[in-house]
Design a protein around this nucleic acid. Structure first.
Lengths: 329, 329
DNA sequence: TTGTAGGCGTTATCAT
DNA sequence: ATGATAACGCCTACAA
């Protein structure tokens, strides 16, 4: 594989000139630039990014560590990050932590070892592993979930959960349950808190029996829904914290023969592509996922540029989209 | 940030010894190993992967370039690749080409510049840009779509499309249409070919008016479905080449008030998570996406190990899962 | 404007 | 078994 000195030899100049010519640096004789370019082309020369990064002590690669590639919410975030990064001249490396602290740590280490320019992270927990990056001075931006000491781009998910719950109250549902994600995952905690806010505000008595917490997966939500539907006083509405969970909930509802909307109201987080396909269509809390990613990337690029200044927290609003699944009539 | 010589100084040994100790090479005095380890720990030393790769002329990073992160099929492929890669000691870098030749080329170049150990690619077209890797000796494995001259892991998608179409014929549908992806994308071409195979085999006259080709997106499929439903002789069944397109098709069917199954049969490729949620549940051609990725990664690791030997083509079978959307009764 | 040379942090060769 | 040292390919003072 051709190196810079091969190009220099072929063009009959020094390696320094090749470097300058190819990087458009300072003033280089246009004729030489031409010679260098064609020599490079003839040799099929591709600069070695490793050597360049080693020398410059920085890479043009951004890491994006998300908790679940299979979740449409996060793939939207990813596209937002990618679009901004690419226009900024950076490439994005997507890593899947799978809500798994070990995998997250592993990829954080990769980010350090590969000396990535910065990292956008949706922290699985109050991850301390991120100190590894901070110690090294690598900028980090947290997205979707908070992380102390770094820039954060969040959604006002507690308020959104409260709004969604209030919507169910106004629609006339009486026994509103909540299925949220695992304890410790901030979005899950917040959505539950928002639900409780709205319950209190409506003057309804809190009932622990109406709340379930499960993994952000369909299976857990299916079981939780079955439980909440059983017994003498079943729920007549559900706030579900995640679109993957919503799949499980809707399956359980179908299996139990309960008509969604008319008998059991449902509102779920995230406007999944299939939300309008089920019948009745699913009322959702649409999060600005793409914008979340785009903003996070922008903050990260700013940090890479200049890492001074205190961490910033930006909070975006979610939007309730009312459809048939929360209508009784 | 601590370097290997900092560790050496602190442990009172040479850099060579540190390197050997940390990499478990040859025979190093166990006592020194201990000293080195603790020195490294105290300093928070993380080896510089850039320098290591530069020196060793190889990286422990695999590139995975897929055409659409938002497509559940490809995220399953990604998980398959990742699982195998991780157990083999490699990290996976996921890049989203978006069915866009320019982006694909860009990421291919990144793969070369970062000297990635190998690349798994779902080629957008008969991409010639991949020569850039071959010239450099970087192993490539094509997944989902063929690519001349490299290992390939494919699905027998033509046969699967034929089976699905035959299934519709047997279910009693008469005017079976087909919505496939863009010309030039091999999976799209193959699925259409399989459809035609089955049409011929059933002794039905081919009608170009029953076929539409659109992007692998919901919007195009929605319009195509509207067209196929209009006119004096509308379709009474549809083979849809992709789960994203299926969303558009089902939306159009709903908007037109046609009952799926009873009036218009539908079979779609890819067993999306929501396929059982719609009513009636969607009959699908389930592709072994995870296995596809896992096998591709395994072949790639083999190639990295030893790149001699002629390219291999492995073809996996897809499975028809019959549900209500293809039942007339 | 162009060239020379040092160093980024490792690993591997060659002595010792 | 351990240490000194030469690459790996590039960028960038510094010199000319």
């Amino acid at each position: 594989m051709a190196t810079i000195s091969d190009v220099a030899a072929r063009a009959g100049v020094s390696v320094a000139t090749v470097s300058r010519a190819l990087n458009g640096k300072s003033t280089v004789n246009p004729e030489l630039v031409g010679r260098v370019r064609s020599a490079a082309a003839e040799l099929g020369y591709h600069p070695n990014g490793l050597a360049r990064s080693l020398r410059k002590q920085q890479t043009a690669v951004l890491g994006l560590i998300i908790s679940d590639v299979a979740n449409p919410f996060f793939t939207s975030v990813a596209r937002g990050v990618e679009d901004v990064a690419l226009t900024g001249g950076y490439s994005v490396v997507l890593c899947n932590s799978d809500e798994n602290l070990d995998k997250e740590r592993r990829y954080l280490n990769v980010a350090v070892q590969e000396r990535m320019a910065g990292v956008v992270l949706s922290p699985t927990a109050a991850a301390t592993s991120v100190d590894v990056l901070r110690g090294r001075g690598t900028p980090v931006v947290a997205v979707d979930r908070p992380l102390a000491g770094v820039d954060q781009v969040l959604v006002d998910t507690r308020r959104a959960a409260a709004e969604a719950t209030t919507h169910l109250v106004r629609a006339g549902y009486r026994r509103i349950g909540c299925i949220s994600g695992p304890e410790g995952i901030r979005t899950a905690d917040d959505r539950l808190a928002g639900y409780l806010d709205a319950v209190d505000a409506a003057g309804i008595r809190r009932e622990a029996a109406l709340v379930r917490r499960t993994e952000y997966r369909a299976e857990g939500a299916r079981r939780a829904t079955e439980e909440l539907l059983a017994g003498p006083k079943p729920v007549d509405a559900l706030l579900v914290a995640n679109s993957t969970q919503a799949i499980g909930t809707l399956e359980a509802l179908g299996a139990a023969g309960r008509r969604v909307g008319a008998e059991v109201g449902v509102v779920a987080f995230d406007d999944a592509p299939w939300a309008t396909l089920v019948s009745p269509p699913l009322t959702v809390v649409a999060q600005p996922a793409y914008e979340l990613g785009a903003l996070a990337a922008r903050l990260l690029l700013d940090r890479i540029d200049d890492n001074r200044g205190v961490p910033v927290v930006r909070t975006l609003a979610a939007k309730l989209i009312e459809r048939g699944s929360s209508r009784r009539a």
